[in-house]
Amino acid sequence: MNMGKIVAIAYNTFRESIRDKILTGVLLFVALIIISSVATVQLTVGQWMRLTTDVGLGSISLFGVLLAVFLGISLVFKEIDRKTVYTIVSKPVRRSQFLAGKYIGLLLTIVVNAALMLLVLLATLAYVSRQEQNPYLGIFQAWLLMLSEFMLVTAVAVFFSTFSSPVLSAMFSIGIWIIGHLLSDIRFWGEKSMSEAVRIATDVIYYVMPNLELLNVRSRVTYHIPIGWDYVGWTSAYAMAYTLMILVAAAFIFSRRDFK
């Protein structure tokens, strides 16, 4: 596989996202939320470090996922809608190379955005922390796991966008994201159910859907509970394997579709 072509497509996707003003808007909005939490903590007695960390990580996570979904679903759709894909796949470029390049470029955009959001959070914490102990390591680990979640959610959005409309793709992707965070609850409801069918269905969902809650360690960071690097490593590997599987399926579908 020619990496030069994938790199060219990835760079162009990244350049498109950077020149798109939406990202700047999202970044400013998140910065505003994180910084405004400083104003809020002035009104609370103690706990302000905890509150800022919680609001900051929560904002990065939420806006990162929204970026992943909405950029992910528009990724393939926009190329087909504007017919730019015609001039790409008629060149000596495999459709899977095109998809890989677009995905990598998009992921790079999301990582850069998440890194900038992290910097805003760390700067804010440095400002409010003064003598309190900073949970910087935990925040960094939580951020790495968030990146794994963005990676997976982007792949899910790209997968749906290879064969479905943007609205449906957004619904499916957000649906999977919500289910992915509620898997333990879903299984618990299944076990409590009287119906065998419901039990089987919840079991299937539990084993097939990605368990995104594994990638959420925000509350542990907020309460200063240490997170081991082995946990970060294994859960990231889990997300990566899942992502790869979804991307292979997306490439399979994309390679067989007609561009009418």
């Binding site: 162009n12 498109e16 015609y86 008629s90 000596p92």
Partner: peptide
């Protein structure tokens, strides 16, 4: 497609 050039009808390109 290595020695092929193709220009589609009503081309829309990356406007940015």
């Amino acid at each position: 497609r290595a020695a092929l050039g193709y220009a589609p009808e009503q081309p829309y390109f990356y406007e940015y």
